[in-house]
Amino acid sequence: MSEISQNIVDSIYNQPLISNSAIQLINVIGDKHHSSADTIQIIECDISLTAQILKIVNSASYGLNKPIETLAQAVIFLGEGELFRLAVQACAGSVLKNALPFYESEPGVLWAHSLKTGLAAKYLAPLVKESINAEIAFTGGILAEIGKLVIGQFLMTRQEEIYDFLNKDESFDNFLLLERKFLGTDHCQVGGELAIHWKLPEVLCQCIANHHSPRLAKDEFKSHAYIVHISDMVAMMSGKDNGIDCLTYPLDPDYVKYINIESSQLARIVLDVDKDFAKIKSSV
């Protein structure tokens, strides 16, 4: 692909970071040799994050009869994976809940879509043929669309022209081509650059950069890239909580090489994601 134009590059470097705690946590969870004590230690150093997590765990949707007061108790009750997911959700939410020009048909849909993608990855992880890091797959789902934070403002300036183009060609089925036509780049490439700038682990940079083209990920990261790709599709199927680009991306049918999934399992995942999403909405 062509070089990204200078004003988009500048915008990548000016994007507010997802929190330092999130970056540390993601790097720790990506390391096979870490322990849950490492996870707790990073969260504990972030007082506001700790408070947010304890608030969620003690909300009605978790149905506890005795309050959880410390992260050490929380990790016993939730398990490390769920504690990590709550922390990433809280940190990423503060960036992804901001209004997103151009893509969002209503406020909050970028965050809703990202959360559903992460949740779908959580449910798809056990179906992946080779062993993968489920927390990294979840994070890949949450962060897949971050490139839109950068390019949304640039597309917004040409909204009318773009809408005309879309309405002229009803069979148009690849929004990335549209982004490239109007900007010379797409939200995958820009998201990948942003992930490198945020110093995320390489597996995540690859997942984000290739979430619509998982076959282009490096071989060692393909399973993770396919799971994020498929999770994004699951999140789009629900229609609601998606942007104007909903369903206008092709599916890579080679997912069958990496994920064992039948249509009845897919229906189950659609349902579980909807239920989890409703639970999260009611807990915050």
């Binding site: 789009m236 199927m237 599916l251 049918p253 039948e262 249509s263 897919l266």
Partner: peptide
């Protein structure tokens, strides 16, 4: 969603 594996054809 066009899927030759017939899994994603929920619509």
């Amino acid at each position: 969603i066009s899927d030759p594996n017939n899994t994603f054809n929920i619509g």
